[in-house]
Amino acid sequence: MSATVNHVGLPRDAYKGAATTLCAGCGHNSITNHMIKALYELGVEPHLLAKMSGIGCSSKTPAYFVETAHGFNGVHGRMPALTTGAHLANRQLIMLGVSGDGDTASIGLGQFMHLIRRNVDCTYIIEDNGTYGLTKGQFSATADLGSMQKKGAVNTFQPIDPCAVALALGCSFVARSFSGDGKQVVPLIKAAIAHRGTAILDIVSPCVTFNDHDGSTKSYSWVKDHEESIADVSFIPFFEEVHVDYEPGTVRDVRLHDGSHIVLKKLGEDHDPTNRQAAIRVIEEARAEGHLVTGLLYVDTAMADFASTEEIPQRPLKDLGEAELRLSREQFAQFMSEFA
């Protein structure tokens, strides 16, 4: 019996990675599994995938999926720079960045913002647990005001919300989810990858060792009690036919540039994901009410991505040779004569 394969002919196992070294029950491990599912179902060719990360628990995870793909675990908070450079060298690569809240909202906040400002075509997943796990439980900058550390210390600072920052900067794709909500995370990962431009996906991912207690707002129980999804998300890749059999007025359909669709089924109040002001309002209201709003908050499918703005060719720059990169002998002689 032949194994089930995806549309590029690969079995699900082709998307697996090395065994995780994170704690049992870590939200990040769930995200890794969602990633495997999303990449498998999307039919991403492993050799075209570039898994990028910074430093921290989250940044170790690219080793745990698609082992045959290239990956780059760089320095703390600088995944965006490495991603930008690699993307410019080879536009054919699918840039998939994995970062954490320490990596993104503290040391790497500047790079995070400038990546968005340039709209570099990449997916940026924040595995957000509000704590520094590897250094044993200090607050990170996404920890909510008043939330408690395991030993009782209270966070006295306002949180930096990566989604709010991204929206303020005009990011072309902003979504939030919860590691325990695979039904939502998987289509959002697919949509983020299919999107052309910087796609920010903030996934609250509880740290079972340091931030899963009462008083934490990044624990499994708190998120389960306070999660408020704005819409049911499903993703239809370009290679599948669209069957929308919802009642008119109950769904929104966002067509991405590669021909895939994000289909959003209304849950409560109707949210227009192409309205940035509305997305900011949704976040602000949820914050005021003490909820965690999840789903696709905002998408702009028309914004030009960085490589297009820069007018570099689809053909990878890394493949150019002497003939294209050097001046010809005649050009060189002419140029030198101008210095005389």
Partner: peptide, 23 residues
């Protein structure tokens, strides 16, 4: 592609990312 980066941290990071990818 010439990028005016946000700082020197990013500038060298971009160059290293590109070097890694073969440019």
């Amino acid at each position: 592609s010439v990028v005016q980066a946000e700082d020197e941290l990013a500038a060298v990071g971009m160059a290293i990312g590109a070097g890694w990818a073969g440019a």
